[in-house]
Design a binder for these strands. Structure first.
Lengths: 146, 146
DNA sequence: CTTTCATGTAACTTTTTAAGTGACAAGAAT
DNA sequence: ATTCTTGTCACTTAAAAAGTTACATGAAAG
């Protein structure tokens, strides 16, 4: 399939809302930063709203973060847009009458879960504030180089 | 896109080869355990062979592991079939003229890499032997329950 | 030495899932 | 009232992997 950039784009949206909080934040403007369409942005924002990360008001271009960016982690964002889907994909159609086919899903599944949790724990230790600050540092560093 | 089950199926193939090493191991037989087509199995086995995990001989149904299953880790298998592609997908098409769009790829990329590495380290601590033994334990447990 | 079975690989089709698009009802604001 | 915007639906396009068909070539047994 096409690869999902929802997580990446969602972090983008949240950072954008915080950094440009004093401007008019239409889905059109945000879309121009992500280089995607306004509908894609609005769809993602719907999901973020349903998961309590932002507050929006229909008709007005004024989305706000629902929490302090220090209290929003990459994990919160990941779970909001990707849910608890498996990170590593099990083949769920194996022959149950074979010793391997009949047991590998359960066995591999536990190791997949361990690995996924190790990754998600990392995300739980990074806040939106960290992302924003690092973006701003990178931006300053760019200017110095010129 | 369709979700890849290459990793899962590759572990399946390797465990199958080891457990049934005394039988004739045609791609057809292995495919029947994975419930896929022989061509898919042969394609995966080509990749595993190119990466030094198995040895095959054209025309004969006798694939062998190239190493002791204690020396093959889930990470070896993962890298063989998935390469070093990113685990979490960055949107690589963002507006470079925007503070967020111009820096988020680099910033998020490092956190994605940290998370990916945390997951892959887990895989590096699990051997094919562990998988095989756990499969056999699960199989015995099933029989007792009957 | 020929028949049978198997691999290895190429080319093509199907499936899946997310992005992208067009449309529009309804809310907000001047 | 007019204009802008959101929220959402329905549809199309894109991309990647699985699945399929085909076949040249190698192995092995009679």
């Amino acid at each position: 399939m096409r690869v999902s950039t929802r997580f990446s784009d969602s972090v983008h949206i949240l950072a954008f809302i915080e950094i440009y909080q004093d401007q008019k934040l239409s889905s059109e403007l945000i879309a121009s930063s992500i280089e995607t369409s306004p509908v894609v942005v609005r769809r993602l924002m719907s999901t973020l709203r349903e998961n309590g990360l932002i507050a929006t008001k229909k008709g007005t271009a004024e989305p706000k973060l629902s929490k302090n960016p220090r209290e929003i982690t990459l994990l919160d964002i990941y779970l909001a847009v990707e849910g608890d889907k498996q990170l590593f994909t099990l083949d769920t159609n194996t022959n149950p009458d074979c010793i391997v086919g009949g047991n590998i899903q359960k066995v591999l599944g536990t190791y997949y879960e361990d690995a996924k949790m190790a990754a998600l724990r990392k995300f739980n230790n990074v806040s939106l504030q960290d992302i924003i600050e690092t973006i701003l540092v990178e931006q300053k560093a760019k200017k110095v180089l010129k």
